[in-house]
Each structure stands twice: as structure tokens, then as C-alpha cells.
């Protein structure tokens, strides 16, 4: 009886994900196999044109740039997030520090990206700082390039990495580090050999939290990037709004969804529980 009632409890959630998740994906899936309408929309006629357009140099290039930006910014974010979350977890009065990590969530993403424009722009804070420190050359444009896109992604997804890492490291038994030191490991050695394997779940979660949204990023490359740092999100927007090619936009969306799904599958693979053996008492 209990089991059947349990199914009922999940009904609202199942309805929710049907309406807002599964049905849209099915629509996108169907659209990608239809012909493009002249002024947007689709013509109800089977066509593989959208998918054949994916096998082009320009699409390959955009995919590569997207992947590169996502991988690079995920690695950089992780390198910053790991020591920060370690410090947070080992600090006793960390309420204020945690608040500082969370506060950016309260500010709209676009506002935060515009703040970066104010920092990196030709007339921006960074150029003023350089002049103040004695730089006498032409003002430098730090915006509208590949690295500006990477930096703003690192900034945006840092809290998304810090929080799962922090909650994982906080549960870690730091006594194990002492044990490792005692048995001959250096400080760094104890962190790499003992802490990292034990917070693996947190690291994988943190990587997914940064990697998947970066793969689908649109606003950031649109605002601080250039044509060289065009990402798949920009291609989708372009095909919907300018090129009136909805089937192609749907096909690109499908590819993105597949890449994200692949990431989640890797996550489940890495976090799977080992098969349990029966515990036998020693004689």
C-alpha cells in the first residue's frame, strides 16, 4: 500500500517536469526535423537540412570555442573554488564569509556582467588603476575578447562551485590529514592523496554546476565577447531572431542537451556506490 501512495506523492513533480521539461524537449526534437519557415517558425515537412548544417566548419568552430571556454573557465573556477571552500570549511566563524559568497545570487546576472564592463572597459576601473600605478601607454581594451568571456564565466559560476565544495569539505574528517602527515605525507601530499579522493563527489557536482550552464551560456559572450568568442548559445539566438532558422536553432539546442546529459551520466558513473560486501568478523 505504501508503495502506491508514494507514486501519488510524486504526481505534482511528474506533472511539473512533463509540462516544463519533457514536452519542450519533445517540441525542440520535432522542430529540428522540420523545414524552416520563411519568417521564422517551421513548415510541417520532414527535413534533415538542420542537421546537415551542423556538419559545417563554422558550426564546428563555434562548438570548439564553446567547449574551450567551458573547459577553461571550469578549470579556473575549480582552482579558485577549492582553496576558498577549504578555508571556509576550516574557519570557525564563517557566517560573514558564506554570506559574501551568496550575496551575488541576489543581484541580476546582467547587472553583474555590466559591472565587469565597467571594470574591464577602455575607460574602466582597471585602466584607471594601471594609469595610477604608472602605466603611460594607450588605454587597453580588455573587453570583447575570448579571455573576457572566460573571466566573467569564472566570476559567475564561482559561488555555484564554492557551495557544493564547501558542504562536502565541511563533512570531511580533518583528522585524516593529521594521520596522513603522521604517516609521512607532506602537507600538500596529504591534501592530494587523502582529502581530494574523499571530496570527489563535491568536486564532480561543482564541475557540473559550472560546466553545464557555461556550455549553454548566451548573455555573457553576447555582452563581453567578440565574434571570435561566439558560443553555441549565441548561434541559437542568432538562428531564432535574425536568420529565422528555427529548425537549426532546435538542432543546436539538441546537441547542447545531449552534451549536458552526457555530463550528468559521467557524474552518476563517478559517484556510483561500490557493491557492498558482507562484513565478516575476524576470528
Amino acid at each position: 500500500m505504501k508503495g502506491r501512495a508514494g507514486v501519488l506523492y510524486t504526481l505534482p513533480l511528474m506533472l511539473w517536469s512533463c509540462i516544463f521539461f519533457i514536452i519542450p524537449i519533445i517540441i525542440v526534437f520535432i522542430y529540428s526535423f522540420l523545414a524552416k519557415g520563411l519568417y521564422g517558425g517551421v513548415v510541417w515537412q520532414f527535413s534533415l537540412k538542420a542537421f546537415s548544417a551542423l556538419f559545417s566548419w563554422s558550426f564546428f568552430r563555434v562548438s570548439l570555442v564553446t567547449l574551450l571556454i567551458a573547459v577553461l573557465s571550469t578549470i579556473l573556477t575549480l582552482l579558485i573554488a577549492l582553496p576558498v571552500s577549504y578555508y571556509l570549511a576550516r574557519t570557525k566563524n564563517n557566517t560573514l564569509l558564506l554570506a559574501l559568497v551568496v550575496i551575488p545570487f541576489w543581484v541580476n546576472l546582467l547587472l553583474r556582467v555590466y559591472a565587469w564592463i565597467a571594470i574591464l572597459g577602455r575607460e574602466g576601473f582597471l585602466n584607471h588603476l594601471m594609469t595610477f600605478l604608472g602605466y603611460r601607454g594607450e588605454p587597453v581594451q580588455f573587453l570583447f575578447n575570448f579571455w573576457a568571456v572566460v573571466i566573467v564565466h569564472v566570476y559567475t559560476y564561482l559561488p555555484y562551485m564554492i557551495l557544493p565544495l564547501y558542504s562536502n569539505i565541511e563533512k570531511f574528517d580533518f583528522g585524516l590529514l593529521e594521520a596522513a602527515r603522521d604517516l609521512g605525507a607532506t602537507h600538500m601530499g596529504s591534501l592530494v592523496r587523502v582529502m581530494l579522493p574523499n571530496i570527489k563527489g563535491g568536486i564532480v557536482t561543482a564541475i557540473l554546476f559550472a560546466f553545464i550552464p557555461t556550455m549553454g551560456s548566451y548573455a555573457i559572450p553576447d555582452l563581453v565577447g567578440s565574434t571570435n568568442s561566439h558560443m553555441l548559445g549565441n548561434s541559437i539566438a542568432y538562428n531564432i531572431r535574425t536568420a529565422n532558422n528555427w529548425p537549426l536553432a532546435s538542432a543546436i539546442s539538441l546537441v547542447l542537451t545531449l552534451i549536458s546529459a552526457l555530463g550528468i551520466m559521467i557524474y552518476f558513473f563517478l559517484n556510483r556506490k561500490p557493491a557492498r560486501h558482507k562484513v565478516r568478523e575476524a576470528p
Binding site: 583528522g175 602527515r181 603522521d182
Partner: peptide
């Protein structure tokens, strides 16, 4: 530092490395 001292400790809460097997713990 502790890793340079020729002495080892047995801790109250065992402090075994949970991600390693018995063999790898002892081999550490």
C-alpha cells in the same frame, strides 16, 4: 614536522582513509 619524525600515531577514532581498501591503508 610530523612527517619527518620517526614516530607514528594510533588515533582514538582510527583515522583510516575511507576511500582506500585495508591493503592500501596499510600500504600508505
Amino acid at each position: 614536522p610530523p612527517n619527518k619524525r620517526p614516530l607514528n600515531t594510533v588515533f582514538q577514532n582510527y583515522a583510516l582513509f575511507p576511500h582506500l581498501t585495508v591493503f592500501d591503508n596499510v600500504a600508505f
